[in-house]
């Protein structure tokens, strides 16, 4: 048991969660291996965002066990969870940037809270903004940014402190296709170059296809390139489909496309 727990980044073990009478997650079990991306799919209200909030300890399961980086966090108090959250970066649906702070203060929030000096913070923030290609926006306020830029700032903020685990909550929802592609490429960079474990919640089939068929590597000239290689990509990407709070599918991209399940077929149309 302990071996299994320490060799996985996240484990859901028979998790049950509900709001009052309404059951959101019903006996959900799955695991995320280190360096692996789980693409969590399903219609609206099937418990995808709830799954991410459980990992962060923002919500507590009613029964079952939840392991993050080898620790059983099921009964962790808020103060104990604070330490676990340092290992996790979360990208929220609309970015969830702090309105009263500019991009620099938003991205450097975690470091400012830890008492880091402004110079140190600025160095790291510029690095992170370079990664998401938004260096010019450093002193802008969130209200001055477009939807795509807000998500990218959200990604930069989640990456500060080099978390081992990243959770994406529909980061491409409502974005135009090129911007959505940029966001997926950032997720692939983190998966393939940084070895980050992640859960990627989405209901956009294009995101799933891209994550299952493309990977990022560094070519001979030292440049980052995107290559099409289903085998390489799928070795690091697994798909889980939720329906009414239950896992109805778990497997590779190929298995998902070929699934005979009518719900999945309808979803992938």
């Amino acid at each position: 048991m302990s071996n299994k727990n320490s060799s996985n980044a996240i484990i859901f073990e028979n998790i049950l969660f509900g709001f009052g009478e309404q059951i959101i997650l019903n006996d959900v079990s799955f695991s995320v291996k280190p360096g692996e991306t789980i693409v969590l799919m399903g219609g609206s209200g099937t418990g995808k965002s709830t799954t991410l909030k459980l990992v962060l300890g923002l919500l507590k399961p009613e029964s079952g066990h939840l392991f993050v980086d080898g620790e059983n966090i099921t009964d962790f108090t808020e103060s104990k969870m604070m330490a676990v959250r340092k290992k996790i970066g979360m990208i929220f649906q609309e970015g969830a940037l702090f309105d009263s702070l500019n991009v620099f203060e938003n991205v450097g929030f975690r470091l400012f809270e830890q008492g880091a000096s402004e110079n140190d913070v600025e160095h790291i923030v510029r690095q992170m903004l370079k990664f998401v290609n938004l260096e010019d926006a450093i002193y802008k306020m969130p209200s001055e940014l477009s939807g795509g830029m807000r998500r990218r700032v959200g990604i930069a903020r989640a990456l500060v402190g080099k978390p081992k685990i990243i959770l994406y909550d529909e980061p491409t929802a409502g974005l135009d296709p090129p911007t959505a592609r940029t966001i997926i490429e950032l997720a692939m960079k983190l998966r393939d170059l940084e070895g980050v474990s992640s859960i990627f919640v989405t209901h956009r089939i294009q995101d799933a296809q891209q994550l299952a068929s493309e990977y990022v590597t560094i070519d001979e000239k030292g440049e980052i390139v995107v290559r099409k290689d289903e085998k390489a990509a799928s070795s690091r990407t697994k798909f889980i489909m939720l329906k009414q709070g239950k896992v109805i599918f778990s497997g590779s991209g190929r298995e998902l496309w070929e699934s005979p399940d009518p719900y999945i077929k309808n979803f992938l149309l």
């Binding site: 909030k53 604070m82 959250r85 929220f92 969830a96 940037l97 702090f98 309105d99």
Partner: peptide, 18 residues
């Protein structure tokens, strides 16, 4: 209230701040 509905409160907790 606005921070709550735009998930800023959750984001703050996720970033390790109470």
């Amino acid at each position: 209230g606005s921070m709550k509905v735009s998930e800023q409160i959750d984001a703050m907790r996720a970033l390790g701040t109470d």
